[in-house]
Design a protein around this nucleic acid. Sequence first.
DNA 1: ATCGGTACCTGCACGC
DNA 2: TGCGTGCAGGTACCGA
Length: 264
Amino acid sequence: MPELPEVETVVRSIAPLTGERILNAEFRNLRILRGGDPDALAGRLRDRRLLAVQRYGKFIVASMEGGGYLTVHLGMTGRLLLGAAPGKHTHAIFTFPRATLLFDDSRQFGSIEFSEDFPRRVARLGPEPLEIPFDEFAAALQRHKTRIKSLLLNQTFVRGVGNIYADEALFRAGIHPQALTHRIRRDRARKLYDAIVAVLTEAIAAGGSSISDYVDAEGRPGFFQISHRVYQRTGEPCTACQTPIRRIVVTQRSSHFCPRCQRR
DNA sequence: ATCGGTACCTGCACGC
DNA sequence: TGCGTGCAGGTACCGA
């Protein structure tokens, strides 16, 4: 489900929990809980306040009173829900004085992890796409030798871009998903950089994309899917030239593009 | 050191 | 109604 704009929207919707104390934590599914005994972790979290909740790419990191970090990743279908009733796919329940926060995830690709130090896998991520300077972005394109779609999905390149926003940005920049990164010229790299910034900014403003079931912590869907020009629009006419949108597989992921606007 | 491919898991839409 | 297939916002890990 969630790429940078969706995770950003979720983080904003749980902002009221900042400074609040965890009265109880319950873990029902050990698959999503990384490295740690559920009861020990519940004990470690109990009566501690959330000092800050921040997004790093697609990761949500809460720094805890008394030290340590609670890291949440939503995977494909994960949700954080305030004031919802627990269900079949509820894997964790955090009780606060005035709210209950659930972690639901039908596919169980998401995760919750507690670490005393800042989480390693978050520290390893590349820069935020809305913060990286253009020169650094362009240099990284030259340094790698792979397909652009694959690099955009690589979280050590920039963090937070996923399949939807990679396809949408490539369309706006007029770049074929299989284009080799080191052969992209500077003017094209500039278009791509601008397209990534624009598409992410617009998507955040729209509350993200709700493809099948994404909602924020208050249960509100996003509406950026209305603005998708290629993602899951296979066969529909290109908004620029009417050519039918095509779907191909690049690095095991679907890629949607206009064969006329995005030549190799 | 970088890469591409595969595994992880459930649910849904589709054709038969 | 059921069954098989393919597809779905993700990352981690493996071997080349």
